[in-house]
């Protein structure tokens, strides 16, 4: 019980802080927009973390899920449909369907092959999006209006859009956390660590992985639909494989072991990007070394930082420990 509470402490604090921001009036609208974007990326990252950290499925095609969600918004917008009760379910369903079809093929492979095949499917989605001439092709498509919720322009207002994204982020995080602890999640986690054992007790891992892949895809689609609204613009760039790489980057930076790490990773990524891009032109160069450092020194990412700090402060040369134990 106590262990469960301490596990919840960090994510709870994070959500409280995010909730406080719009009421503190820090930095005005610009900061809210920035954090909104970070939280949307966080939604996608949490779902990717479910796949990578939970199921051991390293997907390099997650941006395609987001892109499909975003293009669903654009396509409906072009058809004059902006009602969220239609737009969001469509975005989720489209991404889930794509995940179902591509996942059924990709999950026949594993390891590096899985990475490559998800990348290939992502690229297929990218080129497909580029060829939608009615949606602007390579140039992208500017939305006429943001999605409405039951006819009300809820997402127009900066602060309510922020709060909607925060609520969805919390919902996705809570849902994914519950899933990992459930029977289903137990099979997923076990299959990540030892597939042979899982088969020997009577589970075929593939159906479990496929369901996880579809769920993550649907959440990715949700994030994409939100992102389209945030920027009021959709372009093939949002499906590019570099975006998939970024998502993977921030999931690892945040820490694979804990789902809220993905949110921390997204926040760190967006804020760093903002800050560094003001400092100098080649700011992207910094990301590479940063990831190397994070992987080397923060074994559990940003989410594991408190634990890592404790471990460092306790560190002694091992020989002195043995001596004192012998004495």
């Amino acid at each position: 019980m106590r262990a469960a509470l301490t596990r919840l402490a960090a994510p709870a604090l994070l959500f409280l802080l995010l909730l406080a921001v719009p009421f503190l009036g820090i930095g005005g609208g610009f900061v809210l927009d920035l954090l909104t974007r970070a939280m949307i990326l966080g939604i996608a990252a949490v779902s990717l973390s479910l796949l990578v950290g939970g199921a051991g499925l390293v997907s390099l095609g997650h941006a395609a899920m987001m892109g499909i969600g975003a293009y669903a918004v654009a396509a409906l917008d072009a058809a004059g449909i902006t009602e969220g009760m239609i737009v969001f379910p469509t975005a989720l369903a489209a991404a889930a369907l794509f995940a179902l079809v591509t996942g059924a093929v990709s999950l026949r492979t594993s390891g590096v092959h899985f990475i490559m095949i998800t990348l290939a499917f992502g690229q297929m989605a990218f080129f497909t999006a580029s060829s939608f001439s009615s949606l602007g092709g390579d140039d992208g498509y500017t939305l006429y209006a943001r999605t409405e919720i039951l006819g009300s322009p809820l997402l127009q207002d900066r602060r309510s859009f922020y709060l909607v994204c925060l609520a969805l982020l919390a919902l996705v995080w809570g849902g994914c956390t519950a899933i990992l602890g459930s029977r289903f999640g137990r099979v997923l986690r076990a299959a990540r660590e030892n597939e042979r054992r899982v088969r020997a007790v009577g589970f075929s891992p593939v159906p479990y992985r496929l369901v996880a892949y579809v769920m993550a895809g649907a959440v990715g689609g949700l994030a994409g639909a939100l992102l389209a609204n945030a920027s009021e613009f959709v372009s093939p760039a949002s499906l590019s494989w570099t975006r998939s790489g970024e998502l993977l980057f921030l999931v690892i930076l945040g820490g694979l072991g804990r789902l809220h790490g993905a949110i921390l990773g997204a926040l760190a990524f967006v804020l760093l990007e903002e800050w560094l891009s003001h400092l100098f032109v080649y700011w992207r160069l910094v990301f590479g070394p940063l990831l190397v450092l994070a992987v080397l020194f923060l074994h559990d990412g940003i989410a594991g930082l408190p634990g890592s700090l404790r471990a460092w402060s306790r560190w002694r040369p091992t020989f002195s420990k043995r001596r004192s134990a012998d004495a």
Binding site: A178, R183, V187, A190, G202
Partner: peptide
């Protein structure tokens, strides 16, 4: 995990196992 494999469906998503 082994008990779970013979105790009904494992496609249950929310209840803590």
């Amino acid at each position: 995990l082994a008990v779970q494999a013979r105790s009904g469906s494992s496609f249950r998503f929310l209840r803590p196992a």
